[in-house]
């Protein structure tokens, strides 16, 4: 793993712009005037202590929370408030801190749900499972199989996800997000609770996704060595406010970040 951009990797213009976003729940201010931007093709990390508002930030970006103030612009389209289901059609996919898979369904079905927006045939065709509906199902299956291949989960294709170990469930969740072929992928603690090897695998997948598909990645992670290694720029939040923003080296050297979160200087 290295921080240097690999060959062929291209950082483009701003794809996501978060301007002055605030979010309150009653009297609690979860986010307070946070602004940052994400460039196309970049790996952007959001870090901070527990309760800093990192997950709330992601929830605002994909419309699950409606910010009380401020504007979020994605691909040039500004929105103050939007419905949650709209974010997927705009090209945003995400994974969750606590795995949010569909427990009763197989790995394959879970990943196929990621293709839902690409499938248009109505229920009568589906009831027949014939002609256009069958063709559509097979075409999307092929895309899904590529994702399965990419994440090396062929052997658990037909296993019900509720029975899978934690690390694999995390991978299936990533697969489901990738199946939608998103422009931007939001990862909420993709490596929480994993052992060293699983973390290495996950890092490799994240970098490969970024590299091969040019997907922009915004991730929240607590493992500082991972964050500092794989991300291009880092935002630091504390008590809902942005306290630092910059390359991993700049952030690491920032005294406020050290005080609020990192504790001792990393070496």
């Amino acid at each position: 793993m290295s921080a240097e951009p690999t060959v062929g990797r291209k950082i483009g213009d701003v794809i996501l712009d978060v301007a002055n976003v605030s979010l309150s729940f009653g009297g609690v201010r979860a986010l307070n005037g946070v602004s940052f931007d994400v460039n196309e093709g970049e790996v952007r990390a959001i870090i901070g202590p527990n309760g800093a508002g990192k997950s709330s930030m992601l929830n605002c970006i994909n419309g699950f929370y409606k910010p009380t103030e401020g504007m979020i612009t994605f691909k040039g389209e500004s929105h103050h408030q939007m419905e949650t289901y709209e974010s997927a059609s705009q090209g945003i996919a995400r994974t969750f801190q606590n795995i949010a898979l569909f427990k009763g369904m197989t790995t394959l079905d879970n990943i196929m749900t990621g293709r839902n927006l690409q499938m248009k045939k109505n229920f009568l065709w589906q009831a027949l499972y014939f002609g256009p509906a069958l063709k559509e199902e097979l075409e999307n299956r092929e895309v899904v199989e590529k994702v399965i291949d990419f994440l090396e989960i062929e052997s658990i294709r037909k296993t019900v996800v509720g029975r899978l170990p934690y690390g694999l469930q995390k991978r299936v969740e990533l697969a489901r997000a990738l199946a939608a072929e998103p422009d931007m992928l939001l990862l909420d603690e993709p490596m929480a609770g994993m052992n060293h090897e699983e973390k290495e695998d996950m890092c490799r997948y994240i970098l490969d996704v970024n590299d091969e598909f040019g997907t922009t990645i915004v991730l929240i992670e607590h493992d500082m060595s991972v964050v500092m290694d794989i991300s291009d720029r880092v935002v630091v939040l504390d008590y809902g406010e942005k306290i630092a923003d910059g390359t991993p080296d700049e952030v690491r050297a920032n005294q406020r970040v050290v005080d609020a979160y990192l504790g001792v200087q990393h070496d």
Partner: peptide, 18 residues
């Protein structure tokens, strides 16, 4: 799959675009 997604985890289903 949409039905089961809503049944198992409605928030995640909605974020996928269901």
């Amino acid at each position: 799959r949409s039905w089961m997604a809503i049944r198992d985890m409605d928030i995640a289903a909605e974020i996928i675009g269901i």
